[in-house]
Amino acid sequence: MVEGVFRNIVYGASTALSITVMNAQADSVRLLEPRGTYAVGTVTYEWQDFSRPAEYSAYPEDRRTVVAQFWYPANPAPDDQQASYNPISEDYRKVSTNSFLRSGFHTSVENANLILFAPGRGTERFLYTTLAEDLASHGFVVVSVDMPSIGYVIFGDGLIVKPDSGFRPPPGMMGGPYEKVDQFFELPTAMGTADLDLVYEKLIDLNRSDPDQRFTGRLGLDTVGIFGHSLGGRIAGRFTTDHDFVKAYAAMEGIPPRDIRYGGKIGIPTLMICSKGTLPYAIENYKSYLDNSPVSTYFAVLDDFGHNSVTDNPFIYPDRFNYPIDPEEGLQISRKLLTAYFLGQLKGRGDLQEDLKDIEQLNISTHGKN
């Protein structure tokens, strides 16, 4: 765990800009409506860790700060405001969400399972809103974390922290050998894992005594899930290994560090996701995890998907992505897959392969020991 003194700043809307310059979008874009029974609330915090310096700041007294956005089962009041997707960025100002800003927690939901999201390198927390809203509508509390220097972060006071160019893999590296890939990502993996440690400590504080009384006594912190995308999948794998309260781990084209893969250090059924196009380049890396897993592990291969099909970006800006899958269909499949996995692993509901057998683009197999 991270030790130190923490400072809270809460604000009610997403504040990060996209690192990518986008084409003009349609007049309006509305995200897919969640499929669950609960309305969805959202609130965003800034959390500062006084035990770590802000390596992205020239001022030596600045401390590392993360931004954490929540989506949760809510009981919105009639005058609650619809949450903006991102009110500051011109790129996303016309996108409508299905969440209500700072709504009260739904009174019928107790001990709600927590799911942490670790975004990909250069990616903002809110780009997973479709996935997060769907999970929240099924009774989960989702927390997606902006990690400075790893992702693209804008804080509430307007400070912009761009991804560290030193964390961008050089051309050809991702094709192997994977010893070099593992070594290259050691530093951002350690940074991101410490960020998630900070977030979990703050969740404990909120569950114990939320000043706004929204989350007090509502969070189930002993049975936690985590999803990581790309580099976030590597960070999520390290965090899972370090904490036995993590009972579900899913990753899209992200793989745990080398010692975890070859050592079989994750003893829970996990979900590894890969697009069919990426698989030929990544199969040996996945095999190092799947073949050494001490328990059964799901391996999902998605036809026609791209690396970012699990994010909202292709849905919002379809002309910017040339993936074969229709962006809406990609999101529909992504959220069905993740929600089914977390419902099964954290709540004991359904059978993953049986529930998703009719999705033509999805091939799920199991590996490892039973």
Rank of each mutant, 00 (worst) to 15 (best):
R7P: 00
R7F: 13
I9L: 08
V10E: 09
Y11C: 00
A13G: 01
I19N: 08
T20C: 00
M22F: 10
D27Y: 12
V29M: 06
E33K: 08
E33G: 00
Y38I: 01
T42A: 03
P53M: 06
E55C: 00
P60H: 09
E61K: 14
R63N: 13
R63A: 13
V67C: 10
A74D: 06
A74K: 09
P78S: 14
D79W: 12
D80H: 07
A83L: 05
N86W: 02
I88N: 07
Y92H: 11
R93L: 11
K94W: 07
T97S: 03
G104K: 13
H106Q: 05
H106S: 03
N111K: 13
N113H: 15
G120K: 11
R121P: 01
Y128I: 05
E133S: 02
H138D: 02
F140E: 02
D146G: 14
S149P: 00
I150C: 07
I150E: 06
Y152H: 14
G158R: 12
I160M: 14
V161H: 06
F167W: 08
P169V: 14
P169W: 10
M174A: 06
G176H: 07
E179Q: 12
V181I: 15
F184H: 11
E186Q: 15
E186L: 14
P188V: 14
M191S: 04
N207M: 09
N207G: 04
P211T: 13
R214Y: 03
G217I: 11
G217K: 09
G217C: 08
L219Q: 04
L221D: 05
D222T: 15
G228I: 11
L231H: 02
G232Y: 08
I235T: 12
G237S: 10
R238C: 00
R238F: 01
T241A: 15
D242P: 01
H243I: 12
H243L: 11
D244C: 06
V246L: 13
K247I: 07
K247D: 01
A248R: 05
D259P: 00
R261C: 07
Y262S: 06
G267R: 14
L271K: 05
S275W: 01
T278F: 10
N285D: 13
S288Y: 08
S296V: 01
Y298R: 04
N308Y: 10
F315V: 05
F315R: 03
I316W: 02
Y317H: 06
P318T: 08
R320S: 09
E328V: 15
G330T: 13
G330K: 09
G330H: 10
Q332H: 12
L337G: 03
L338Q: 08
L362P: 01
I364L: 04
S365Q: 15
S365F: 02
N370C: 00
